[in-house]
Amino acid sequence: MKKLIRYCSIIILFSTVFPLNYNLFKNYSTPFLPIERTKLVLEKYFILDSVGIIFGLRKIISDIAWIQLLQYYGSEPYEIDEEESPKDEEHSHYEHMTKIQKGKYKRLLDYFKRVVLLDPLHTLAYFYGIGALAWNVERPQEALELANIGLENLKFQKGDPNSDYWEIFKYQQAIYYKLSGNYGDMLNKLKEIVESGKSPNLVKAILANLYKKYGYYKEALKIWEEILSSGDPEYTERAKIQIYLLKSRCVDG
């Protein structure tokens, strides 16, 4: 009798496994793209990224990808597009940028795409990436591409007006203003982005430089002071210099 119960239990449990798994496949969703839309963009990290997906370690590999991105963007721009990159004498033309990087870091978008493919919820990557692509390396089309990826991945937040989805939407609008030459509205949109409190220091620095370019020294000064008080070591020196310059301009003005 005991034996029979044991065999029956095994058979019942075994037959339960299939509908349970079927139900999971049908109804359970994760933030990750299905495999047919998963394209590993950087060949040299293919194995590492695959390990992250196969082993269920996407988040930690995404963090490593983020560090690799920062190292790429923080290193010398060895991948330079000669045709697009401005000559030294042209630099003054791009004085509104945080760094003169046009035509450089050709694979920057791929690095950002890699991070958000592994972790579609990595919102800082969207904010930082859109800002860097649109205003630092002057490739707004690529920035729009990243914004579209962000909007697609975060569409589940659409119902919340304070969500990161709508934050990316603001970035998208700012880029459209930039492309149409409507710099006033672009500035206002960037101001809105910075005031939301979710923007990285890179975007704040972009806005401060734009303010400076258009003669809003007090506003620029306020942002640089805010960046300085954040304690971000990457911006400390630059913030101090800008604050010194802007204070003197404010006095002159």
């Binding site: 963090d63 983020w66 560090i67 920062l70 190292q71 800082l124 930082y128 990285p200 220091n201 954040s230 304690g231 971000d232 070591p233 990457e234």
Partner: peptide, 11 residues
């Protein structure tokens, strides 16, 4: 330490 200033705790 390598992950930059923003969101280091995430790592």
């Amino acid at each position: 330490g390598l992950s930059g200033f923003e969101q280091p705790q995430r790592i």
